[in-house]
Design a protein around this nucleic acid. Structure first.
Length: 272
DNA sequence: CCTTAATCCTGGAAGC
DNA sequence: TGCTTCCAGGATTAAG
């Protein structure tokens, strides 16, 4: 499940292959994976990949003239670069394949299809239609902004942190990990945190996300980066997926429960 | 405002 | 072994 660290990994690995490369043609195997024009030019055919940006969990491939494709990987989406053509005949989940002038190929694959592509004539149009409804990126947000957002909502902390309109980039894995790092109960009210605690949370969040990126992200089910490489941060998870196991800090049994419609794990001793 | 539940979808795991 | 059932979850939407 790609969250900020995984999407950033994809961005970094793809940038190395795609920036400055011309898109020769695009092969679309599923129309309904795309919102907006699905004409080849809208999918960057004939253009150069000028920039690859990320906001929260979303990516955008941008052409010099501003044309862009926003990509959300959803649960099982992947973008993979290769020198060889992907085998579309045997893999029914490859929905889009870009062929680059240099011969490289980029494939968008998404078995569960919670992800998708959105095409726009300009970067401004993308921002207006999609990114403006997102909160600040989790790596860029300043404490005062997060404090104001949390103070303005009366919900469990976990529910607020999962809300992409408040903060863009965290999903179920990193919210649970962050709350453990902060020693905070996910059920605690978002509007009960004093500013110093939010300041500490932002610091912990940056550290957590940077470490996860450095480790290549978390490969839980089938996540891999743009080169098909798995990450290793799942081996360093403190709580996510560890319900019933001993807390790595205090030894007490970690407790799993449902919160905000999500599987949640916390340490009853370390998180108050 | 807030909540929960249903929806989309497939593969993997669990149960019988 | 082989079938059925359940479950995972990001984002959106509807209903309470």
């Amino acid at each position: 499940m790609p969250e900020l660290p995984e999407v950033e990994r994809v961005r970094l690995t793809l940038a190395a292959h795609l920036l400055g490369q011309a898109v020769q043609h695009v092969r679309l195997h599923r129309r309904d994976i795309i919102t907006g024009s699905n004409r080849p030019a809208a999918l960057l055919a004939g253009a150069t990949v000028h920039d690859i940006r990320r906001h929260g969990k979303q990516l955008a491939l941008i052409a010099p003239d501003g044309r862009c494709v926003a990509i959300h990987l959803g649960m099982t989406g992947s973008l993979r670069y290769s020198q060889q053509p992907p085998n579309v005949a045997t893999d029914k989940h490859i929905h889009v394949v870009w062929t680059l002038a240099g011969g490289g190929m980029l494939a968008f694959r998404d078995p569960r299809r919670f992800g998708g592509l959105w095409t726009f004539p300009s970067f401004d149009a993308l921002c207006e239609a999609r990114w403006s409804s997102l909160g600040p990126d989790a790596l860029a947000i300043v404490p005062a902004r997060l404090y104001a957002a949390l103070t303005g909502t009366h919900r469990p902390l976990k529910a607020a942190l999962l809300d992409q309109g408040i903060l863009a980039g965290l999903g179920n894995i990193y919210v649970d990990e962050l709350l453990f790092q902060c020693g905070l109960d996910p059920r605690k009210w978002a509007d009960s945190l004093a500013l110093p605690r939010v300041q500490a949370m932002v610091r912990a969040m940056r550290t957590l996300l940077r470490r996860a990126i450095a480790a290549g992200g978390s490969s839980i089910s089938d996540y891999t980066d743009g080169n098909g490489e798995a990450g290793s941060f799942q081996n360093r998870h403190q709580v996510y997926g560890r319900s019933g196991k001993p807390c790595r800090r205090c030894g007490k049994t970690l407790v799993g429960f449902s919160l905000a419609g999500r599987t949640t794990v916390r340490c009853p001793r370390c998180q108050k």
